[in-house]
Amino acid sequence: MLAVNKALVKVAKLYRAAQADTLSALGLHPGQDVLLWTLGGAPDGMLISEIAAQLGVEQPTVTRSLSRLDQGGWFVREPVPGDRRATLVRLTAKGRAVIPAVEAAWRTLAETATGGMTDSDQERLLGLLETVRTNLLTVATDTE
């Protein structure tokens, strides 16, 4: 079992590093891609609470992530009429324009990770990873 643990840790670290390298060309860090992609699915914008719920994280996590992205011009924050505490987040044209590049980066990562695998191998891998995820849910909260 120690070999399985080591393999999972190694793969997770390598994937995160490859993701960071791939996203850096877009001016993004891992996690920021998912946040922007999520906003891309909501043309009218989303409340921070809605983003947090969709991503399976706490609102302060979303607020921190947005603060890190603030200087990039990816989105705007707008007050919500009638609710001084709520903030609507909407992608700018620049933010909308990066979504296809994010999706292309994800495709490249998936193709790289599964290079040399047949379609059948990939389907089996997906099934095994889903089993691992389900098993881990007994000790951890799902963030995706």
Score class of each variant (00 low, 15 high):
Arg77Trp: 02
Thr108Gln: 14
Leu69Ile: 06
Glu103His: 06
Ala104Phe: 07
Ser67Thr: 11
Thr63Pro: 00
Pro81Thr: 15
Glu111Met: 15
Asp70Tyr: 09
Thr87Lys: 06
Ala110Asn: 06
Val80Glu: 01
Pro81Tyr: 12
Asp83Gln: 08
Ala86Ser: 13
Ser67Ala: 14
Pro60Val: 14
Asp70Cys: 05
Arg85Lys: 14
Pro60Phe: 14
Gly95Met: 06
Ile99Pro: 03
Ser67Arg: 13
Leu66Trp: 05
Gly73Gln: 07
Gln71Cys: 07
Leu88Trp: 00
Pro81Ala: 15
Glu78Leu: 15
Arg85Cys: 04
Arg96Tyr: 07
Leu91Ile: 09
Thr112Asn: 10
Phe75Ile: 01
Phe75Pro: 01
Glu78Thr: 10
Val80Phe: 06
Arg84Thr: 08
Thr87Asn: 01
Pro60Gln: 07
Asp70Lys: 13
Phe75Tyr: 14
Leu91Tyr: 07
Thr108Met: 09
Glu58Trp: 10
Thr61Leu: 02
Arg77His: 01
Asp83Phe: 11
Ser65Thr: 04
Val62Cys: 03
Ala110Met: 13
Trp74Gln: 01
Leu88Pro: 00
Arg68Asn: 11
Val62Thr: 03
Gln71Val: 14
Glu103Ala: 09
Asp70Thr: 05
Ala105Pro: 15
Lys94Leu: 13
Gly73Trp: 07
Val89Leu: 03
Trp106Gln: 14
Val80Gln: 08
Gly72Ala: 14
Ala101Leu: 12
Glu58Met: 09
Pro100Trp: 08
Arg77Ser: 08
Pro60Trp: 15
Glu111Pro: 00
Pro100Arg: 08
Ser65His: 04
Thr108His: 12
Val62Lys: 01
Gly73Ala: 11
Leu109Asn: 06
Glu103Phe: 04
Val57Lys: 04
Ala105Leu: 13
Arg77Gly: 05
Ala104Tyr: 07
Ala97Lys: 12
Trp106Leu: 14
Arg96Leu: 13
Thr87Phe: 00
Gly95Pro: 00
Val89Ala: 02
Ser65Asn: 06
Lys94Asp: 07
Gln71Phe: 09
Thr92Gly: 03
Arg64Cys: 02
Leu109Ala: 05
Val76Lys: 06
Arg96Trp: 09
Ser67Lys: 14
Val89Ser: 01
Thr63Cys: 02
Thr87Pro: 00
Ala110Trp: 11
Val102Ile: 15
Leu88Phe: 04
Arg107Val: 13
Gly72Thr: 05
Ala101Thr: 08
Val98Asp: 01
Val80Ser: 03
Pro79Asp: 09
Ser65Met: 10
Pro100Leu: 12
Gln59Asn: 10
Glu103Met: 12
Arg64Phe: 07
Thr63Glu: 04
Leu91Asn: 03
Leu88His: 02
Val102Asn: 03
Glu111Trp: 12
Arg85Thr: 09
Leu69Thr: 04
Pro100Glu: 05
Gln59His: 05
Ala110Ile: 15
Phe75Gln: 01
Gly95Val: 08
Phe75Ala: 00
Thr92Ile: 11
Thr87Asp: 00
Gln59Cys: 05
Glu111Phe: 13
Ser65Val: 02
Pro60Tyr: 15
Arg68Pro: 01
Arg68Lys: 11
Pro81Cys: 12
Leu66Lys: 09
Pro79Leu: 10
Lys94Met: 09
Ala101Asn: 11
Asp70His: 11
Gly95Cys: 06
Ser67Ile: 08
Thr87Arg: 11
Ala101Met: 12
Ala93Cys: 02
Ala105Cys: 13
Thr112Arg: 15
